[in-house]
Each structure stands twice: as C-alpha cells, then as structure tokens.
Nucleic acid binder design. Sequence first.
DNA 1: CAATCGTGATGACACAGGTTAATTTACGCT
DNA 2: AGCGTAAATTAACCTGTGTCATCACGATTG
Lengths: 250, 250
Amino acid sequence: MFTERFLRHRRGVHLEIEERARLETAIGEIKTLPPRTNVVVAGEELSQSILLLEGFMSRYIDDRNGLRQLVAVHVPGDFVDLHAFPLKILDHDVATMTAATVAIVPHSELEAITEDLPALSRKLWFSTLIDAAIHRAWLFRLGRLDAVGRVAHFISETNVRLMSAGLSDGRRFALGLIQSDLAEICGLTNVHINRVLRQLREERLCVFRSSLVEILDPEKLAAVGQFNPAYLYIDLQSAEAPSSCPRPIT
Amino acid sequence: MFTERFLRHRRGVHLEIEERARLETAIGEIKTLPPRTNVVVAGEELSQSILLLEGFMSRYIDDRNGLRQLVAVHVPGDFVDLHAFPLKILDHDVATMTAATVAIVPHSELEAITEDLPALSRKLWFSTLIDAAIHRAWLFRLGRLDAVGRVAHFISETNVRLMSAGLSDGRRFALGLIQSDLAEICGLTNVHINRVLRQLREERLCVFRSSLVEILDPEKLAAVGQFNPAYLYIDLQSAEAPSSCPRPIT
DNA sequence: CAATCGTGATGACACAGGTTAATTTACGCT
DNA sequence: AGCGTAAATTAACCTGTGTCATCACGATTG
C-alpha cells in the first residue's frame, strides 16, 4: 500500500477503497534516491509526478548569487510535484533532502483518472491546494515573524505534518535536515539559525539536531511561532496512536 | 463576455469556445463592491467562488498584533478564490483593495463541470496552480531579496500580469494601492516603503503613485528584483500590445 | 471656513540579523 | 585508528530596516 499516507487525516477528502486502489495501479515504478539528488529542473517538460513514500524532499528557487530559498519541504505521503500534471513545466527545482523512496506516477495515468473519476480528481486537486495553503503560511512566516518565530513556526508545522504521517509522537521526530537547510527555509543565514537554535534550547522550547528534533514545550513553541495548524486541513481525531516513537539515527 | 480575461495568454491552456461558454453560464451573479470590503473570512464554509472582472483584490493573513501579510494580489481575470471549491474552507481572508466588479460562480456549477468536462476541469485546476506558483515567487521575494528588490519584483510582476490583462502597456498602469499596501505585500514597514520608493524614483527606475505606476526602466527594474516572469506561464506572443515586455535576466 | 483624517514624507536613533573569520565537533572513508 | 571534509559554534563588528516622532498636504465633513 504505497498510497497509505496520501491525504491521510485530511478534512473532508477521505479516499474510498476503490479510489486508493486506482491510485495504486497508477504507480509505474518505485525508486530509491540518494540524499541531495535533484529530480526536477525548472523549465523542463515533465511527463510524470512523484509520490514521496519515505524521506524528505524540497522545492526551491535559487537567486542569481546561488543563495537558495526553499519554497516547500515534503514529508512521506506528499504528492511532491503533482503540480507538474496540470502545469507540465515547473517554475522551481525539486530535490531530495535525505535518502528517499518515491513512487513514480505517469501523467497519462493521471489524465485517465481525470477522465473517469471526477471525485478522485477533485481530491488530487485538493492535495495541490494544501501545498498552496502551506505556501501562504510560509509567506506569513517570512513576512511577519522574526527569526525565532520563523524557526518555531516551521518546527511546529513539521511536527503536525509528521504526526499525521505517523512519524512524530507530538514531541520527537527524525528529520534529516541540517542548520543550513533551516536557513534556506526561513530566509536567514546559517550563523543566525545557529543563534536561534541555541536560544530555543536555552529557553527549553525545543532541541534541534539533524538526527532528532525534540519539542520540549509544544504549546509555547507554537505560541512563539504564532502557529495555527488550521491551514494544514488535518483532522487528527481519526489518528491512530503512533506505532513507535522515532529514534535518533545512529 | 465576463470570462474574457480568464486564463488569457496562459501557456498551453487555451480555452475552447464551448468551454468559455460553459463558464459564462456557470456565472450566477455580477456584483460591484466598494473598496476595502471583506468578502471571505478564514474558516467559514463557502459555496461559491469569485471571478474578478474589474479592480484589485487581496488575500491576507493577520498576525496576533493585527499586522497584516498579503499572500496574494488579484488582477482582473483572476479566479480569486477558486481554491475554495476543492478546499470548501479557506485559511485566509479575501477582500477588495479598490472598488471591484466580480462574477459569482456557485460551487454546484463547478462540480457539474468537473463531472462533465475533464479538460475544462484541468484548466480550472491549472489556474489555481498559477496562484501557487505566484506564492512561490513571493516566498523567494521575501526570503532572498532586500527591500528595494522586493518592491522592484512586485512592480515587475504586476506589470506583466496587467499587460496580459490588457491593463498595462508595459510602462504605465493604474493600481489603486497605497504605500501601506506595498508594506503588507513586501513584509516591510510603510516608513521603509516610502524610503524605497524615493530611491526607485531617484534612480529613475519607477515612479509609484496610488493612481498611476510608471516604470521608467523595465529591464533595470526587473534586474533589481531578480524578476524572471517564467512562473506566470504567460505567453505574450499572442498579446495585442507587442511593445516592450521585460525579459528574463540571467 | 475650520477641523479632521488618511496618506505621504523625512529625520534621529535603536537593534535584529548579516558578515567575516576562526575554532571545534561530528562523521564518512581508507 | 587516523584522516579529511562537512557541519556546528562562537565572537566582533557592521548595516538594513524598524521605531518613534513630527510635519505637510489634500480631501472630506460639520
């Protein structure tokens, strides 16, 4: 069941069994990718999209000096570049952050789905609009929060998304990111990210390590980041208890 | 022809005559709204979406101190909150910036379109993904550009979008925004926006007035804002005003 | 006609975050 | 185990933007 995590716990878009089965048959290939591997280049025509099964991926735009702005971080269950199905050409690059396992879905299959199954099509559409909602939350983060708030907001967001994917217990999760990734996400320098992480550590809000993120005080962290999870459209009522606490990668 | 500007000049999604006709019949009502009128509140269930015919609208998120971050500015031809069709509830507010004329489209009509016309449905989907692409460009703007760059980028973007809508000749356009709107768009204070506008004026790049924006040097302005219009998916080849359109800077 | 309000303009000062550079720690590889 | 490189940490200093305060101007409005 490769699509197990896709749209899990999303308000009002429960996938029917037949719909999930149809998606499963649409998958062409399963691939494992090394960390820091570019998979999509802006401006190139695409004929397939990627469903992320394991690991973390990013979408980003580089400026003319090579400085990078991440515009999205994807977690298992995300249909990373489903945008490429209607758009055909992307405006940004896509790459793995950690080692990753992905399912490749040809656009021909997606087109067939839009012809046959309008309800499933609307759910695919929905999933791309969640990405847009997350973009907007990131705009708020960059436009209105200071450095500490931005990092707190990102960690709070990632925690909720990983809870939904069954990869966080609400306080601890593994995230393969390094400090300069955070810098590229939050529009800051890695020197300043380091200062912010120290402050969050000293104030006992959270401890960020590449191998393991530990949130000591989720409420306070969310307050510092003015984080309101409504934009994720996640309903964790229906969440089963996470099977296992993530462990540090050793 | 209310849908005249919708998806105009967008690469690869030309609307067929029948498709346009179908959209026209989907329109329920035409409304005129005063400036600064809130039309959608975050968290409320929606059963209709708005196609903007005349004027400018915005989407925004307020922080807990009442500071506002605009996450989108909409120009005539934009299907402002089509996102609300798959999402049903929005994560942000929507309001007019200037006086505006809008067409109201009930979601029941859109649902019928997704049942009957998969090709048109994909084009509607496409149009929401343009919004997402613009969100990403805004993330780049906020994350990687300094104050002058942000304003230059926004003005360049708006110029191209308005050219596509037939509302700019590439150098002059009317935009009802005031300096504090720019501040809320660019994540800056209005005091600093004022300084930036003076600099752009003194450097003979552009003159921003609420009534009229004049771009004196489109290429240089685009360069300052690292503006590359690819993300707008606009193909102005077919545009009636062929004159001088800003080019990607490399 | 004065009073008020929204908008724009500008100066003085403060500070969050950038820059640069050096050092330490962690970790993959032979 | 030891080496080489990437990542993390920290300090000193600098600057872009925020803050606060004031003034000017035009459009309403009483």
